[in-house]
């Protein structure tokens, strides 16, 4: 009856736990993850767009939409891997309970990582759907932004888990949002092309995972292949794997003491 569970599937009941809780709180959660970025898209896209007309040869809202997909995935994955994971880890002691069962910390981290990424994907895809309904783009190729959204979710979920591992209280997350995420969003080509930045800043930005993702998502959303996708893919991959390793290292240290 208690035969060992194969290691690869041990994350699943933990992921499922989060899913079950979310299903109950979905309406409130969707407001945060979907409506907020949607308002940004519409307000900036139509509002600011009416002043700007075209950016890089397309209407501003079409330019902004690809950035919004990535940004909403970033924010949703980050929120989940910070505030929500922290409350499960630190406040509710859910993680400690999990560790009394035949599970290891890695199982919990994988579950939290995939779960936070899922929230990002949900949020990004919702924006994609709205953009399609509003006819911002009619290219079937825009569906190929979904793998990019998945990558963004996975990357920022992993980064959030690093911050989660070193946080002492919720207040700590303000630093990450204000000093890391917000600046990153502003220099990653979400709202305006990166080449508007001073060249040194553009160089920094081009190595960031969000800029790499926007670089991939924007052409796909508008119906053509990115000219040089490989560096962007590698940048996102490197950030994700590095963050995941580090998050595991720091969380293990936290739980050892």
């Amino acid at each position: 009856m208690t035969e060992p569970v194969p290691a690869w599937s041990r994350f699943w009941p933990i992921y499922r736990r989060n899913l079950l809780v979310w299903r109950r709180l979905a309406p409130a959660s969707l407001v945060g993850n979907v409506v907020e970025p949607l308002i940004t898209l519409l307000a900036f896209g139509y509002g600011l767009g009416s002043l700007l007309r075209e950016v890089e040869g397309v209407p501003y809202i079409a330019f902004l939409a690809a950035g919004s997909l990535c940004m909403s995935a970033t924010m949703a994955a980050s929120f989940e891997s910070l505030y929500s994971a922290f409350s499960r880890m630190h406040v509710q002691k859910t993680w400690e309970t999990l560790l009394n069962a035949p599970l290891v910390l890695r199982d919990i981290l994988i579950a939290e990582w995939l779960w936070a990424a899922s929230k990002g994907v949900l949020s990004g895809c919702a924006i994609l759907l709205v953009a399609a309904l509003l006819n911002v783009s009619r290219e079937p190729m825009m569906l190929l932004t979904i793998p990019v959204i998945v990558a963004v979710g996975l990357c920022f979920a992993a980064m959030g888990l690093i911050i989660n591992a070193i946080a002492r209280s919720y207040d700590f997350f303000n630093f990450y949002f204000t000093l890391v995420l917000m600046p990153m969003i502003f220099i990653s080509g979400v709202y305006y092309p990166i080449d508007q930045l001073p060249s040194w800043l553009a160089l920094v930005a081009s190595k960031l995972p969000l800029a790499a993702a926007v670089d991939l998502a924007r052409p796909l959303f508008l119906g053509h292949w990115p000219t040089d996708p490989l560096p962007s893919v590698l940048i996102i991959l490197a950030w994700t794997m590095g963050a995941l390793w580090w998050a595991h290292h720091l969380t293990a240290r936290r739980f050892r003491s």
Binding site: V5, R17, K93, E96, A101
Partner: peptide, 25 residues
């Protein structure tokens, strides 16, 4: 555990069901 650490997001019976799954049951 010392502090019950029950799952506040679930009902009584759900707490048992969800926990059982952690054992692969």
């Amino acid at each position: 555990p010392q502090h019950d650490a029950l799952d506040p997001d679930f009902t009584v019976v759900e707490n048992l069901e969800v926990y059982a799954r952690y054992f692969g049951l």
